[in-house]
Design a protein around this nucleic acid. Sequence first.
DNA 1: TAAGTTGTATACTGGATAGTATACAGGGGC
DNA 2: GCCCCTGTATACTATCCAGTATACAACTTA
Lengths: 215, 215
Amino acid sequence: MASRAVRLKPESPGQSPWKPTEERARQREIKREAVILAAARAFRQRGYHNTSVDDLAALLNVTKPTIYHYLQNKEEILFECFRTGLDQIMSAFDEIRGSDQPALDRLSAVVRKYTQAITSEFGWCMVRAEDQDLSPVMSRRINALKSQIDKGIRGLIKDGIADGSISPCDPKITAFALAGAMNWIAHWHRTDAELTPDQIADRFLSTFVSGLRPR
Amino acid sequence: MASRAVRLKPESPGQSPWKPTEERARQREIKREAVILAAARAFRQRGYHNTSVDDLAALLNVTKPTIYHYLQNKEEILFECFRTGLDQIMSAFDEIRGSDQPALDRLSAVVRKYTQAITSEFGWCMVRAEDQDLSPVMSRRINALKSQIDKGIRGLIKDGIADGSISPCDPKITAFALAGAMNWIAHWHRTDAELTPDQIADRFLSTFVSGLRPR
DNA sequence: TAAGTTGTATACTGGATAGTATACAGGGGC
DNA sequence: GCCCCTGTATACTATCCAGTATACAACTTA
């Protein structure tokens, strides 16, 4: 569940004979990511199938072949949207790695990060885009990422039961409930909403941790 | 939030001069619903955009014009799938109307019914189909139904806070969390799953009612 | 300044598919 | 037996759109 952002490391400047080439590669990557971001926004707004590659190109003030210069096909665009969003969620687990807090506290930290990710531009893609629009190979890769996230949440719940910070429950179903509540944010959250992601996360945590029944 | 199933009432037989006509209307309705059910299944399996009307026709051993004889266009098919699913959820509220139980108990009953609805054939349509595939007029009608459901849940939470069966919380966000957890079932539930809808509902309720923190 | 590489555009192809024009078959009522 | 209504099919149109062939422009390097 490591953050997968593998980036070109900027070498010490003015030394490599390949510097210009590297600069090009960086520019290329910037543009590629711009396409992916524009796609994520458009898909969220209009849906994957209601957004043509021509639409995407128009949003970026270029033409279709330019898009295809950076990404092989429409499926790859969707895949990258998926992946970028899921990577954001995965990174929620990075910062609690090695922590010795009670598992419930670690879970709370993950919930806050997760909520931030889901309210990002890529939230829609993680949650609403459909596997069926990807080829079996790509779909399997996405499902592997989703499965890792699920395992991470379940693991924290199991740890919590073990260390006594979480009361005994079915980890699988509890993880589904928690993930479902968070993923659903992508359906109703608007960036102009009154609540910040952190406020949403705190209220969710209050509900899930304390429960509905008065103590 | 009344159940909207308006049905032809079978008149006392053998009397009306229009009986054959009525029989025809009934047959027509049966076939129309068969189309909608087949569509719901196909959409869940392959997605709306990956299912052509020809595909649908083939599933029913007829041809495309037959489909169009019962439904105006593909959008109407999707709309009816939406509506059928949402009606099922709406009916979850019917049986607690007039109940004098504490609101938390009424909410629990709704959660059980809701879970049954979401695991039905139409679960996918309620949750995963996209408004953007409907015209603005139809989309507004669907959103009105969704909004009624949301109001129903929030109302029960507010009632619970008032009658003391639910501890004070933000009703809006709590309703979103609960609905999100349930709606998400449509993403992971398979009919061959090990847990029945009622078992899922009970575990959800245990999580939401008692909370994660040990008492 | 010449040669190669990268980025962008114009203009096209091919395939999928929503929706329709039209014909026809069968049953109920006269 | 004739007519009309309902249901179904064949065969078509029109449109959208993913992806490509090709040309050209601009920059890199020498």
